[in-house]
Structures are given as structure tokens and as C-alpha cells.
Design a binder for these strands. Structure first.
Length: 104
DNA sequence: CAGGTGACATGAG
DNA sequence: ACTCATGCCACCT
């Protein structure tokens, strides 16, 4: 997928630079892997903005292009998820990718 | 400009 | 191990 155009498209959607940065970093996450909000924030170049990362995800559940379900908490738990089924769906998706999830 | 909110993180009790 | 309280950053009203 053209991640380059994706970023520009997100900007066109009305997303700020921060939003685009985080979402782009998320697309860089390989399938079957999971990253914590803190990790993603650092990857996006905004270490410490893990709080804002969550805010971004919550506002962008309408982007099937972005694997938002791969973002979990630092404790290894799922955390929350906006979308059909909520955290339930998130757990199933991660299990489908072969990612180990705590809690069950 | 100020206040409130939230898919979090960390520490203390 | 669990719950409560505080800190953090970006966004919205």
C-alpha cells in the first residue's frame, strides 16, 4: 500500500501532523506483532505522548487501512477498542494473527 | 485563552 | 494482586 499517499490522505481528512505520524507508524507494525501505546508514540517520534495516541485511535476507527487492533497496553493487556465488538473483537483479531495476548 | 476529556503509564496504599 | 490517585500529551468545546 502506498503509505506515502496514505499520510497525505489523512491530512486531507483533517488530521494534524501528530495524527498522521502515529497512524503511519502503526502501518509500519508487522502483522502478528503488537505494540504498546508508549511504543507507538516513540515510534511516531513523540515519546511520552502515549495518551494522545489513544485519543488518535479513538477518533480513527474508520480506517480499515490501519491495524488499530495491534495497539495494546504496556502491561500486555488489550486495553480498549472502538469498533464492532469492542475489546472482544480486538482479542480475536490478535489471536488470528498469532499474537500472544495476556488475560485471555 | 481556559477547562474538560480520553483506546494510557506509573507509583503508592 | 487489586484499587486509587497523579502525570502526561494532544484534541475538542
Amino acid at each position: 500500500m502506498e503509505r506515502r499517499g496514505l499520510g497525505r490522505r489523512l491530512r486531507e481528512m483533517g488530521m494534524t501532523h501528530f495524527q498522521t505520524d502515529v497512524l503511519l507508524a502503526l502501518t509500519r507494525v508487522p502483522r502478528g506483532s503488537t505494540v504498546s501505546y508508549k511504543q507507538l508514540a516513540a515510534m511516531a517520534g513523540h515519546p511520552g505522548a502515549y495518551r494522545a495516541v489513544g485519543t488518535v485511535m479513538r477518533k480513527n476507527p474508520l480506517a480499515p487501512t490501519i491495524p488499530c487492533h495491534r495497539v495494546i497496553k504496556s502491561d500486555g493487556t488489550l486495553g480498549n477498542y472502538s469498533g464492532r465488538g469492542g475489546a472482544r473483537r480486538k482479542m480475536v483479531l490478535l489471536a488470528s494473527e498469532g499474537a500472544s495476548v495476556k488475560g485471555r
